[in-house]
Nucleic acid binder design. Structure first.
Lengths: 324, 324
DNA sequence: TTGTATGCGTTATCAA
DNA sequence: TTGATAACGCATACAA
């Protein structure tokens, strides 16, 4: 691998001059510039990014810590984030921590150490209190961390309202909701709050089943079956996310229930992929693109030490389709 | 940010000794070790990864260049790759190049430059000949690059055979296939070859519609509509991937066709996500996990300068469901 | 307009 | 068992 010095020698110049040409700094004669580029060409020289990173004390790398890009929501979110970050001159380091708090902790420890300039976190593991580390700008997505980390989220309360209201308008009374564990501090809990508020306002009894997001389809199956077995008269389900909603619908048919005649189902997330693959699913659409843009914007502010709000709530919409 | 020297000062030792403690090298008295760890604790010191990278001339970073993690196949593939790579001590830099040859070229230029220790490429853009760059170990997934880059792919020929044969066994004669542009050198073209071979063996006429993978749903719509308009008597479609298959089925209903009574459809990829969301879709399942493991294995060999084969074909299976 | 010398934070060689 | 110093490759302050 040729280095700056090799180029300098070949062009009969000093490292400084070559560096200047590369970074277009200061006064340079055209002749010098040409010589440098020619030497670079001949040697197939490329600057060493790491050395540059060390000197500049920044990497232009942003870490994205999420459960898994295999999930459509996080996949689309990651794609959107990568797109924005790339446009701003950053590259993206990913860490998928699903089902593995140890891995999340490890990523943190490693990423916090000057490997990345900033961090976008949406991982859901519990019991990780390490984010307090000062110095590294962090933005959370749909996840409450500690007080000085800004959160970007969809308007979960509004989403919960819209879904529950729609189910009630469609004549359902016995409506069951699924959500993450109540002790996991996430903005998604506001959906539950909204659901309960709307139910109470209509003198209906809210029932929430708690399902850990980071859990296999099989384990979720157990929980969802309990819904049908413990509440055979359930009329509607407001699910925690779209894949859960679909899984519930498939289970429903095993219990002889037909959607939407027999049972209404509304999901959450409304990714492009799910709306393409299961267009009949009524769902609350999170503005993934806007969330990504906002997260990157906020991160930039943090990087430039500008003040930010604590929370950014982005508007949801309802994909009004056939299942609920 | 405290550095080695700060720790050394606080522990009344030299940088060397502290470094030795951190890397557990050479002889050290327990007393020294304790002092060092105490100082590290007190200062909340973390080694600077970039400085280490510069000295060691490696980053423990692997670049993954794919069209987009928003697509379920690449999403699941990325998740699997990340998982394996993490286990091997690597972190992952992603680049999504969909619809953007410029971006792919840019990523290459940047990643080839010592920013990553190796590269896994599955991007589909044409006209990028830059991968010749020596020195950086590269593995391609489902993509033919140049001769000295090993390719990991599912057994596309077998997949094409299985799908076509099944459609014929189910009584279809007028079978149409969709695939990428024929001038794009990809192992997926072997599906087309298999399709044509099987068709010819049954004295049937193969018809392939070419659809650029990197293109919007809307544009694909145009192409798929042409299938129904130019071949109103089509009996079965073997689609290039599952999302296309679903899109085709939805279009079919607009043309008054019912799947599977009126029209058979088989997809390709068989991701967990699609099989969960659209279980009725018959599809050829790529062994994503095995592909990821293999790719990482091969990459390791390249990193250790061990010889590798040119091509690794992994077995596909058929998800025998209802649409075809 | 160009060159010299220094530092970024780490690891390793060699000497003590 | 420990310490001084050079090297990794680059970019800048300062000098010429």
């Amino acid at each position: 691998m040729p280095k700056l010095e090799d180029v300098a020698k070949r062009a009969h110049l000093s490292k400084t001059t070559v560096s200047r040409v590369l970074n277009k700094r200061g006064y340079l004669s055209q002749k010098t510039i040409d010589k440098v580029y020619q030497a670079i060409e001949e040697l197939d020289y490329h600057p060493n990014v790491v050395a540059r990173q060390l000197y500049k004390n920044k990497t232009d790398l942003i870490g994205i810590l999420l459960p898994t890009v295999a999930n459509p929501f996080f996949g689309e979110l990651t794609a959107a984030l990568e797109d924005r970050l790339y446009q701003q001159g950053f590259k993206v380091l990913i860490g998928n921590s699903m089902n593995n708090p140890q891995k999340e902790a490890d990523y943190l420890q490693q990423l916090l150490i000057k490997q990345v300039d900033g961090l976008i976190v949406g991982a859901h593991n519990q019991g990780i209190q390490q984010y307090r580390h000062q110095g590294l700008p962090v933005v959370a997505i749909d996840r409450v961390m500690n007080q000085d980390i800004p959160v970007v989220a969809s308007d979960n309360y509004r989403g919960g309202q819209m879904a529950t209201q729609r189910l009630i308008e469609h004549g359902a009374c016995k409506i069951i909701h699924t959500n993450g564990p109540h002790d996991l501090a996430t903005p998604a809990q506001r959906r539950r709050q909204a659901y309960e508020d709307v139910m109470h306002a209509h003198n209906l009894q809210p029932i929430t089943y708690e399902v850990d997001f980071n859990v296999s389809t099989q384990v979720k199956d157990q929980v969802f079956r309990r819904i049908f077995e413990e509440h055979s008269n359930v009329e509607a389900i407001f699910a925690s996310n779209d894949t859960d909603a679909v899984q519930i619908m498939q289970l429903a048919s095993q219990y002889g229930r037909h959607v939407p005649e027999d049972l209404l189902v509304i999901g959450y997330d409304g990714t492009k992929m799910v709306r393409e693959l299961v267009p009949q699913l009524t769902t609350v659409v999170q503005p993934i693109d806007k969330m990504a843009r906002t997260a990157v914007e906020i991160l930039q502010k943090r990087l430039h030490k500008e003040p930010t709000d604590k929370e950014y709530l982005l508007p949801v919409t309802l994909w009004e389709s056939q299942t609920g």
